[in-house]
Design a protein around this nucleic acid. Structure first.
Length: 484
RNA sequence: GGUGCCAUCGCCAAGUGGUAAGGCCGCAGCCUGCAAAGCUGCUAUCCCCAGUUCAAAUCUGGGUGGCACCUCCA
């Protein structure tokens, strides 16, 4: 297995901290709004990584967090006059549903900020004790970036003494421009929001928490360091975990800060390998609210089968920037269709347990920093060969068995072709229409039997009018929803 | 302004020193009552210039053109 390490900027052979085991932590969503295609891309990339690692025989422990303490959540709660928990529960739930539609497996651990307050407070205290953090007179606690000689080693940035890039008014109480908040004290703007009580523990519905540093809430970067240490970290090890992943934008400052916190607050570095997935743009523009081109997953899923989106978003290398267009998505659907057509062709037949050359090659391609393009080229070649042989030798039992085994392997490792092929091709057609189409097909078959082609062609036109295409096969007549 | 990434057929996209994968689209053919699906065949010397090398899309330097991060962000 080879992984491109985005900190060392080279492809490295993957060697786990502990034999046959992998610990993976990925930065998940902040649950204050619907997930967009970018969230989908990140979740899909690391879902694929887990599958490939598992196929290589590793026992993977995968954690992806839910950020449920955040300024944006507070803002939304105030705007909509709702309880914080109502907001976070709603978006956490929709995130889960949408991920399931994309075929993204649940992570083994899904830690939430609200459930790990103690671990975060403990880490802050340690950082203060070790001289890496300091409280201010306003009750905030900052990480002292100048106390960490390795700060900026992750993003390879140069400390800019002139602060030329400063665009946001910073608190004058910070010692250094790059210092970031570990604890944010309660400010005016959050008055009126509920406060948790020590006695009941930390109430998730609250947004303001008690701490030795005063009432407030943890800074964003802190949760990942604290939760990794609590849920995943290997002690007495040079690194807390094997792999840390997330979107390309998180490298700085988020991951830089996480790394600093862990480095200074524990006895090891954060991660041995860092992986960052590229961005999703829409028609060559970055998705953003100001441009009004955010493409929410829930909207995409109304129009397309989740698996088509999965195929499309995974079809190019995870590190490249991804430009979403409907045309390319339609192309991806055609490619996925081919998998399902072959599956349909072999429907109901028995599968072998053999390991094929194809499987070895596929795993090899994916084990090379997840080279999906090469993997898909192998898939297309396998499909073509299988179809070719089936065209000339339909009785080839071993080929059928092996082909089914190959398709099953594609399902497991890539998550493509997992549905019933007949249902897949009828996505978006309601039951009523299905019945009508089936009736017309019966009528057409009768007309065909009588060689009344004029009538059968007329019936076909009626069927096509539903936006479907039909195909006559030795097994009978089938229909599919037409591609647009 | 700082840092970094990218530039391969009409479109999408692998390949990072040994002579250009794959898909979509298109054209021709096989199959089919006709279709659809499937199959076969055909389609690029890799943004420009210079250099290193027996050999470069792949390395170096210089251009040109995109993009990202530096502020919340997957």
């Amino acid at each position: 297995m080879y992984i491109y390490d985005s900190v060392q900027k080279i492809k490295r052979e993957f060697i786990p901290l502990e034999k046959d085991k992998v610990s993976l932590y990925v930065c998940g969503p902040t649950v204050y709004d619907d997930a967009h295609l970018g969230h989908a891309k990140s979740a899909l990339v690391f879902d694929l990584l887990v599958r490939v690692l598992s196929a290589n025989g590793y026992d993977v422990t995968y954690a992806r967090n839910i950020t449920d303490i955040d300024d944006k959540i507070i803002k939304k709660a105030k705007e909509q006059n709702k309880d914080i928990k109502e907001i976070t529960d709603f978006y956490t739930s929709s995130f889960h549903k949408e991920m399931a539609q994309l075929g993204v497996a649940k992570p083994d651990i899904e830690p939430k900020a609200t459930e790990n307050l103690e671990a975060m407070i403990e880490l802050i205290q340690t950082l203060i004790d070790k001289g890496h953090a300091y409280p201010t007179s306003e009750g905030d606690v900052y990480f002292d970036t100048h106390s960490d000689s390795e700060y900026l080693s992750l993003s390879k940035r140069v400390q800019d003494e002139d602060d030329k890039q400063e665009r946001v008014e910073s608190s004058s109480l910070k010692k250094n421009q790059t210092d970031f908040a570990l604890w944010k004290s309660v400010k005016e703007e959050y008055n009126g929001l509920p406060v948790s009580s020590d006695k009941d523990g930390f109430k998730p519905s609250s947004v303001i928490y008690d701490s030795p540093f005063g009432k407030g809430r943890p800074g964003w970067h802190l949760e990942c360091s604290a939760m990794i240490e609590k849920h995943l970290a290997k002690q007495n090890s040079e690194f807390a975990i094997d792999i840390h992943g997330g979107g390309a934008d998180l490298l700085f400052p988020h991951h830089e800060n996480e790394a600093a916190q862990t480095r200074c607050g524990t006895n090891h570095a954060l991660a041995n390998y860092w992986m960052h997935n590229g961005f999703v743009n829409i028609n060559n523009q970055k998705m953003s609210k100001s441009l009004g081109n955010s493409f929410f997953l829930k909207d995409a899923l109304k129009e397309y089968d989740g698996e088509v989106l999965r195929f499309y978003l995974l079809s190019t290398h995870y590190r490249s920037n991804f430009n979403f267009t409907k045309e390319d998505l339609a192309t991806s659907k055609k490619r996925l269709d081919k998998i399902y057509r072959l599956k349909k062709r072999l429907f109901g037949m028995t599968c072998s347990n053999d390991t094929t050359h194809f499987m070895d090659e596929l795993l090899k391609a994916l084990s090379d920093d997840m080279n999906v393009s090469s993997a898909l080229a192998l898939v297309d070649e396998m499909i073509s060969k299988a179809n070719e042989t089936l065209d000339s030798a339909d009785k080839h039992k071993q080929l059928k068995k092996d082909t089914l085994a190959n398709l099953a392997y594609i399902e497991t490792i890539l998550g493509f072709g997992v549905k019933n092929p007949f249902e897949y091709f009828q996505f978006g057609i309601d039951a009523d229409t299905k019945t009508k189409i089936d009736d017309l097909i019966v009528q057409r078959d009768e007309a065909k039997k009588e060689k009344n082609f004029e009538a059968s062609d007329k019936l076909r036109d009626e069927i096509l009018a539903f936006g479907v295409s039909i195909m006559d096969t030795p097994q009978g007549t089938f229909w599919e929803k037409s591609n647009i």
